[in-house]
Amino acid sequence: MIQSTFFYTTAIILFLIGLYGVLTKRNVIKTIITLTIMETAVNLFLVTIGYVKNGTAPIFTSTISDVHKFVDPLPQALVLTSIVIGLGTTALMLSLAIRLYKKYKTLNYLEMDGEDEK
């Protein structure tokens, strides 16, 4: 099977794409999308930490009970938590975006700032 360095590299490239988007995009919903990409990247990174080559899923079934082949379940538990937290944050950010749009009739930060100065 594949080397875990490959997954690490993918995760970090994804993280950097997201970070670049957060830094450059001036649209509220675009910012949220890029933040979600970053979260996904971090989740991929965390799962990779527990990845074992030629391992099995960490679940006892009637056929699998060789515990020494299990992949690390702890990072998976962390990722489970972080996915749900990410959903909560995303939902809250989107509702803020809707309110911002209702106030300023635009999704662009710079236009919002212009609106305030008037």
Partner: peptide
């Protein structure tokens, strides 16, 4: 990557 729980949740 043998993380079915995470896969389902994601």
């Amino acid at each position: 990557m043998h993380a079915p729980d995470v896969a389902i949740t994601e």
